[in-house]
Computed example of a mutant assay.
Amino acid sequence: MSGARAAGRETRVLPSYAAEAAEVPFTILHWDESFARDTTWNEHSHPFHELLWNERGASTAAVGSRVWTITPALGLWMPSGTPHSGSAPAGTWCRAAFFGFGAVNPISPSSVGVEITPLLRLLLERLSGTGLSAGSRALTEAMVLDVLVPSPRELLLQVPSSALLRPIADAVLADPADRRTLADWAAHLGVSARTITRAFHAETGTSFARWVAAARAQHAVTLLTRGWEIDAVAEEVGYRSASAFGAAFRRTTGLTPGAFRGR
Rank of each mutant, 00 (worst) to 15 (best):
D178E: 13
L76H: 05
E125C: 02
H30Y: 13
T40Y: 04
A58D: 05
L132T: 04
E154D: 15
R153L: 14
L224K: 00
I107L: 14
H30V: 04
E50C: 09
L157F: 04
G8I: 01
L255G: 04
R126D: 02
V159H: 07
S108P: 02
I168V: 11
F208K: 01
A169R: 04
L157Y: 04
P160I: 13
P47A: 15
R263F: 02
A247G: 00
S192T: 15
E33C: 02
G135V: 15
T222W: 06
T256S: 15
L223F: 05
R210L: 08
V172E: 00
L145T: 02
A171G: 06
I230V: 15
T82Q: 07
P79G: 10
P167A: 06
S80W: 03
G113Y: 01
S207Q: 03
L52P: 01
P176Q: 02
W211G: 06
T71V: 13
L52F: 15
A7F: 10
P109A: 07
G64L: 09
S133V: 02
R179A: 15
P83Q: 09
S243W: 05
L123G: 02
P167K: 00
S110P: 00
V172Y: 07
R240M: 05
A61L: 12
F35M: 09
A183V: 07
A97R: 09
G3W: 13
W53F: 15
H46Q: 05
Q218G: 14
T195C: 08
G205W: 01
G254M: 09
E229K: 12
W211E: 07
T82P: 08
A217E: 11
E236C: 07
A169F: 00
A199W: 03
A217S: 13
L127P: 04
S2A: 13
H84D: 00
T27P: 03
G3R: 15
G129W: 12
S2F: 14
A138L: 11
S192Y: 09
F99L: 14
W211N: 05
S2N: 12
L189Y: 01
T71G: 02
A177R: 01
T130Y: 08
